[in-house]
């Protein structure tokens, strides 16, 4: 790759200090004198880089450290260790030129002023971001067309539905044509049609302006549609950085082998090849340990009357679920980070 990285993280860490108090009057009186605090490692020495124009998916269960990372990259939070640059700026220094070139969209957060028409919030952003009038007009027209905003712009925010508001939020966040987009759950709470719409829009925007996008989502459909590359974070550690398609190779310990038999076979007979997941009309789905796939398919073909056989990776949702259901011990993490950098 000869493109220069737009986003560069180097062992970025964030430790939150949270105060703890036991229940009860005595404990609360004690806490006046001596406050008990506990450190929570939200992000633990994460390193990665993103090139210009890439759309990268940031995956992880709740509390994995995704949002904390995005907040550090957008300058809301100061890290407690490591470093990061975005567009050559250190985000938390909050350089105005940097803030003018990036945006953070948070699914449940709103910058639209509740009681006034959407277009007036847009106007405010025009002034704050110092967008020249012709460019502003052009961008508003373009966003109106792409997101179908025309009927919404004159309505006060409070009269919009969640989906309508989200579209306007995204438009408001893009008026200044940022070259870096941090999208935190941009489709949360939206219906399927609206999700697809937003996805299409992100793709269009990315292509038109070659903006760099880092997004989190709980919807795998978002990630599959938008991101070739994903980062998987769990307990503050980066577990995986690579192609979405490679995720299964790396994490799914099983493959799905689907066989079609001429004569059928008994359950007990099939069980020696792998776990039977489903069986109907001669088609059998087997779950086979990844390492045994080759030998199992060999045996299946040799020992049974097979008319068709396919080997597949499990669905991406299952892979992700599998990864997150395992709690990696802190010792695993450096190794897996090393893995992905090789």
């Amino acid at each position: 790759m000869n493109q220069k990285p737009v986003i560069q993280l180097d062992e970025l860490s964030k430790v939150y200090t949270v105060s703890e108090r036991e229940a009860g009057l005595l404990a609360s009186m004690r806490s006046i004198v001596k406050r008990k605090t506990r450190d929570v490692q939200a992000v633990d020495r994460i390193s990665f880089s993103v090139s210009e124009g890439e759309i990268v998916g940031f995956l992880g269960p709740n509390g994995a450290g995704k949002t904390t990372t995005l907040k550090m990259l957008s300058g809301l939070l100061h890290p407690t260790g490591g470093s990061a640059t975005v567009l050559g700026y250190r985000p938390w220094e909050r350089n105005r030129d940097y803030l003018r070139r990036m945006t953070l969209v948070m699914g449940q957060r709103n910058q639209l002023v509740w009681d006034i028409p959407v277009i007036d919030t847009f106007e405010l952003n025009r002034a704050v971001y110092r967008i020249p009038e012709p460019e502003y007009q052009r961008t508003v027209d373009e966003l109106t067309e792409l997101l179908d905003l025309a009927p919404l712009l004159r309505k006060p925010t409070r009269n919009l539905s969640l989906g309508e508001r989200m579209k306007c939020e995204i438009a408001a966040a893009l008026l200044h044509r940022p070259s870096v987009l941090f999208l935190d759950e941009p489709t949360i709470g939206l219906d399927v049609t609206m999700q697809r719409r937003i996805r299409q829009f992100i793709t269009d925007y990315n292509q038109r302006s070659s903006a760099t996008v880092l997004l989190t989502s709980h919807y795998m459909a978002d990630v599959e549609a938008l991101c070739q590359r994903v980062l998987v974070i769990h307990h503050g550690n980066l577990l995986y950085d690579g192609q979405l398609s490679g995720l299964a190779d790396r994490f799914a310990p099983f493959k799905t082998v689907e066989v079609e038999l001429h004569n059928g076979a008994g359950d007990r007979q099939l069980a020696q090849y792998g776990e039977v997941m489903a069986q109907s009309e001669g088609r059998i789905m087997l779950r086979v340990p990844r390492v045994d796939t080759a030998s199992v398919t060999g045996r299946l073909l040799a020992e049974l009357d097979v008319s068709d056989l396919t080997v597949q990776d499990p669905p991406i949702e299952d892979v992700i679920e599998h990864v997150f259901s395992q709690s990696p011990s802190p010792l695993d993490a450096p190794e897996s980070q090393k893995d992905q950098s090789e």
Binding site: V113, D115, I116, D120, T121, E123, L124, R126, A127, V128, R130
Partner: peptide, 21 residues
């Protein structure tokens, strides 16, 4: 001049919003 535009926008917004209440 930019600050003037920003203040004008905020000011306008403040009037509009407070008029509601």
């Amino acid at each position: 001049l930019a600050f003037y535009a920003i203040y004008k926008s905020y000011f306008r917004l403040a009037l509009m919003e407070q008029f509601q209440y």
